[in-house]
Design a protein around this nucleic acid. Structure first.
Lengths: 119, 119
DNA sequence: TATCTATATTGACGGATGTCGATATGTGGT
DNA sequence: ACCACATATCGACATCCGTCAATATAGATA
């Protein structure tokens, strides 16, 4: 049996829908999609996503990421958590270090949803 | 001569950049892109965009849009203003009514920026 | 066990955001 | 001129969000 909607990340909960520009979005669908968009609606999180994605081997250690910002370590940790909970970043602990990598399909699913397909 | 960056809508200010997933985003670029993403990071605004886009002739009157929500008229007006200022909706007054239509390229530019291209 | 380092969590604070009711503005009809 | 209607703006309020300093947790090493 499939997992409850409530156990899915925003990305998983949204992977089904047609682009926003083709059919009127139901209130329920909009409520599912919005948190995913909110997750990337911040300059720090956009840069984090970009840094991880373009990093060697497609993954980056938190220690590398901290250095790229003039922000406290807890703040970066907070943003990484939000991206992870949204399903956009995957988290792997290796020894003392934590590595993040982008969930490959997630961003493109989102892009499709936003109407890239109808261009 | 070209207009100042400050006079451009977020969409115009961003139309130049490569996808977020390919190169590390500069802090400045991230600060330009984030407001655009924020503009669609709300369930009401997502539905507004979707309603306008999928409406007959690609345009919708504010009076139609108000009826689709259990929200006050000023609230819908507020969200439409945000979408317009972001460059995602165009506004045209005809008589007493105001019609909005989606800026055709804007959403797809945004989708491309978010990495749809690298899928 | 003790200690050092990497990362996460907590609690607090200021500023941004979504919503409303009241009001203003603008347009057409009488 | 006046009124009715469509839309926008204003001011207030509650909630959410980004940030920090302080602290907790967990792994490695001695």
């Amino acid at each position: 049996m499939s997992k409850s909607l409530l156990e899915l990340t925003p990305v998983q909960a949204v992977a089904c829908c047609s682009p926003v520009t083709r059919d009127p979005l139901s209130a329920e669908a909009a409520e599912r999609i919005a948190p995913l968009v909110k997750a990337i609606a911040d300059p720090v999180r956009l840069r984090l996503l970009s840094l991880v994605s373009s990093h060697a081997d497609g993954e980056a250690c938190v220690c590398d990421l901290n250095d790229a910002f003039d922000l406290s370590q807890p703040t970066i940790s907070h943003h990484l958590k939000l991206l992870h909970e949204a399903g956009l970043l995957e988290r792997e602990k290796r020894g003392v270090w934590v590595y993040y990598r982008v969930n490959a399909g997630a961003l493109s699913d989102l892009a499709t949803l936003l109407g890239g397909v109808t261009a």
